[in-house]
Nucleic acid binder design. Structure first.
Length: 231
RNA sequence: GGCUGACUUGC
């Protein structure tokens, strides 16, 4: 809160001295407001920036989009999204934020269709897109669809990273599909992603909670010989 | 110089 007052003071001094905040000033402040939960403040800054004829770029829009999603302001979210599409101010990060936001706000159908659209239109998914989609699908019970997304990405040799795999493993464990979880973990390094201790711990925990103690011990012994040593 | 994803266990 002290920092917040300091920022306000600096801001007022900036404005009083006729120093124009530039794109990056606005961008940093908007992000800061969003991250501290003050989306209204961020939107006010956005308005101020437009009035001052500093044109918001895709990073500013993305920060706002993420802010409204986290604040569950879905009406504002869709409005902003339309604006971004109409102005061509969106990129893969925008899609990642949107898909995550839709899943987080129980708009599962919308999240899935946004992903399908993106995918069909040859939007280039990055490893974060896969992480968001797989995590979202697992959290909402669409395990098989998540598995399909993962396998298809593997087949196309697309970038899947540790977050996609650990989400998938976590989802399978929580659904009691432990054998599949084990096989995903066993196979991931052959697809270019080394398991880390976080991923191994998720699986170990799943095995133990399911009382599969023998499997847990076998897996633990196997860890010692793989790249993921226990922490 | 500014934007997005896994959260196991313990604390």
């Amino acid at each position: 809160w002290r920092k917040f007052d300091e920022i306000l003071e600096i801001w007022q001094r900036l404005k009083k001295n006729d120093r124009k905040p530039d794109l990056f000033t606005y961008s940093s402040l908007i992000q800061g407001f969003c991250k501290s939960g003050n989306v209204e403040g961020a939107l006010a800054l956005y308005k101020d920036m437009v009035e001052s004829e500093v044109s918001p770029d895709v990073v500013v829009y993305n920060a706002l989009l993420d802010g409204v999603c986290r604040a569950s302001k879905m009406k504002e979210c869709f409005e902003l999204w339309d604006l971004m599409r109409n102005n061509g101010k969106h990129n893969v990060v925008s899609f990642n934020i949107m898909i995550r936001g839709l899943f987080e706000n129980q708009k599962v159908e919308e999240a899935i269709s946004m992903w399908d659209d993106f995918f069909d239109k040859n939007g280039t998914a990055d490893s974060i897109t896969y992480g968001v989609v797989i995590h979202g699908l697992c959290q909402t019970g669409y395990l098989n669809k998540a598995l399909r997304v993962l396998k298809e990405a593997e087949d196309r040799k697309e970038k899947l990273d540790i977050c996609s795999y650990s989400s998938m493993i976590n989802g399978l464990c929580r659904d009691g599909r432990l054998d599949e979880a084990i096989s995903i973990l066993d196979m991931m390094s052959s697809h270019g992603c080394q398991p880390n201790s976080h991923a191994c711990n998720i699986l170990l925990n799943g095995l133990i909670l399911a009382s599969k103690i023998d499997d847990a011990i076998r897996f633990f012994n196997g860890m010692l010989t793989k790249n993921c040593s226990p922490n």
